[in-house]
Design a binder for these strands. Sequence first.
DNA 1: AAAGCGGGGCA
DNA 2: TGCCCAGCTTT
Length: 365
Amino acid sequence: MKLSPLPHPDASELLGWYDRHHRELPWRVSPVMRRNGKVADPYHIWMSEVMLQQTTVQAVKAYFEKFLSLWPTVGDLASADTEDVMKAWAGLGYYARARNLKKCAEAVVALHDGAFPQTVEGLRRLPGIGDYTSAAIAAIAYDIRALVMDGNVERVVSRLFSVREALPGAKPILKAYLETLTPAERPGDFAQAMMDLGATICTPRRPACSLCPWRESCVALHQDDPENFPVKEAKKEKPVRQGAAFVAVDEGQRVLLRKRPDTGLLGAMTEVPTTGWTASRDGETGINAAPFAGDWKPTGAITHVFTHFELRLSVYRADVESAGAKPNNGWWEPVANLDGEALPTVMKKAIAAAIPHAFQRIKRK
DNA sequence: AAAGCGGGGCA
DNA sequence: TGCCCAGCTTT
């Protein structure tokens, strides 16, 4: 146990590290370019930040490029067809983000003449933009000294100061510490540096403390173990739900699809007909809940893990003549077109179980 | 304050 | 297999 106080972490140490070791990202303006006067495009920063909510950088890159290619400006996105936005977002998850992305673009055009607000408060009022995202856009796009605290920053700060309180209750304490770290100069680079540090050095497990620019200041490193932080409340165990999915294929190699309700789980996304997803099997989660009578044959089972439950679906297939089947509020889509549909991953798994050649890269488990 | 809301990568 | 990820909205 070290009794003498450690030096307080200095932002200049982190910024110097960031100048040398920052990652190149499609939406990022490098510190060198920033010094040369280049400013970040608020539309790009907003797009990347929404995609990055609870989502890894690696997963976001391809989607970011696709969205910028399809809709180069916020005006283009505002006037886009919402269904096309959902199709482009399919596979990235948390689909309320896509619905709010569209609403936000419309609001920026309608209320702000196509220019994003340049204050934290103005940004915070827009759909899909909360405390983190409003601060991040303000800092990164406008170099405003906002307090940007995401999961990475929570981890870094909790270790630096060895915060014993458990998340999420510890957030106000962590934010107070972050206030003492955030500089008046280069706050945008500082915010990105904190996240790069958390992503590459101060990782959840086996952090590379010997490479950390703040290793001399980290209380957890000197007095405890960084891997013990942040402390988190125990989480509840995931319940299992079960049901059945029905893949109908007609004589033209078309699949019966339908649209889910606009709100709730997988809102506004496309699906194959399924039973309800219930805690235990009963009469309504079996084959007799098929969309129409037919020669339904079991083709396997798939498992998909959502945030708050695990889903096990028995998959049935029937080969039918579409003229004789009754797709109430559904439509027949050629198998060859399925890649362009707004199908969430769980639905691609179900279809792949019934039609093995439909999706190449989809696993059943 | 707590719950609902995806999907993938990693040790 | 469990944990985590540039969180937000609704109740």
